[in-house]
Nucleic acid binder design. Structure first.
Lengths: 208, 208
DNA sequence: ACGATTATTGTACCGTCGGTACGATTTGTT
DNA sequence: AACAAATCGTACCGACGGTACAATAATCGT
């Protein structure tokens, strides 16, 4: 990577960091492109030289987030590869990823679709990293099936996606309806999530 | 209700219908207030006389949707009160509600929070109807527990919320990642959802 | 039937924001 | 010094949510 390329990457990174922080602080819709350029200390023109739209900035941050999530899950499965430790470790990795980036987490259940336009390279990359994460989890489920820790009525990949969707739903619900959960059940959102993870685990245990 | 009130309700309803249709057709962000007033055949001024903002229109549609969902669930539990028929009937009611109003469904997992400002009467109403739905499901789970069809490790209301979040997550994932599911697992999204509902069911069955 | 009140309309307008145009200025390279 | 690339500042466009306001139409009390 030449000096010029390094500088370019540095600038891109600065802009993305500023945008990420502002998105986190004030929300996406409430963050303007002027805000981002000011916070990152570049002119608006330069920001648009690096990213062609606000949406592209958003997508790049999503991608970054997915890569972090992937690394977290791999890391955590390496230190706790067994059962059910590995399962809860994955759940907790997802949980913490949500806390760090609540605004982007929801792209898991909606938002980012498979791009039909190949020119949207960021979206393609997001899709690929998501695929890799699913592969890691599928591999873990396979290991659990082989050792007869769990029992699946469906192909491991399908179970992966189902658990993924269920866990994500529970995490989002816990965070967004925090006050309601506290009032209705008397538990904290952390407790609600842990109980939820345990409940989901039962769905893949029990023989037959 | 006086004649004036009826007329007023009629006008409100027309505006909401037009907005709902446009939101469904082109998305919320892509629908302008001018679009709504034109589609509903009222002047923009009149629209703003009935609703103070676009967000308020959105919230009213959410409320309408929650009421439909509540009626659907009650209706369906009346015709299939047993187990597991009732459970699957609830799942299917949620599923069909999503198809009818995908844009509003996601308010279940995010979007609508408990209002701290009591003056936001629409939000309070949404919260109340949601509470009623949870009560209905909780009642059903209680019936299942009493008849020993299922076995819960947590209070029924907490189980209700957990299942609710999980089911919603699966439905949203199935719809938004339809193409990916087809490619990765070879099944349709309908099949994916049904299998997901069955998987979740296992989490509350099995003794102990 | 008539005046007063209320509802509805059309139009013009404001502020914000995403995005663009473009010339000036800085920076780096040789 | 000279040239090219990157950066900058500023002015601007168009779309949109929302407001102001005067004019007109509908409703109602009497």
């Amino acid at each position: 990577m030449s000096k010029k390329e390094r500088l370019s990457a540095f600038n891109r990174s600065n802009i993305l960091s500023a945008a990420k922080q502002l998105f986190f602080e004030k929300g996406i819709a409430q963050t303007t492109m002027d805000d981002i350029s000011k916070e990152a200390d570049y002119s608006k023109s330069t920001v648009y030289a690096y990213f062609k739209s606000k949406e592209e900035i958003y997508n790049h941050i999503i991608l970054e987030n997915f890569e972090i999530l992937k690394n977290d899950i791999c890391e955590v499965l390496r230190s706790k590869p067994g059962f059910p430790d590995g399962y809860f470790a994955i759940c907790n990795a997802l949980m913490e990823n949500y806390s760090a980036s609540p605004l982007f987490f929801e792209s898991i259940l909606s938002g980012i679709k498979i791009p039909d336009d190949e020119s949207e390279t960021v979206l393609v990359q997001i899709y690929e990293v998501g695929d890799e994460i699913n592969g890691v989890i599928e591999h873990y489920l396979n290991y659990c099936v082989e050792n007869k820790y769990i029992n699946l009525d469906m192909p491991p990949l399908q179970a992966t996606l189902t658990l993924w969707a269920g866990i994500t739903g529970i995490i989002m619900f816990a965070h967004n309806k925090n006050a309601y959960i506290g009032m209705a059940t008397g538990t904290t959102k952390e407790c609600f999530m842990q109980n939820g993870f345990r409940l989901l685990l039962k769905s893949i245990m029990g023989g037959k």
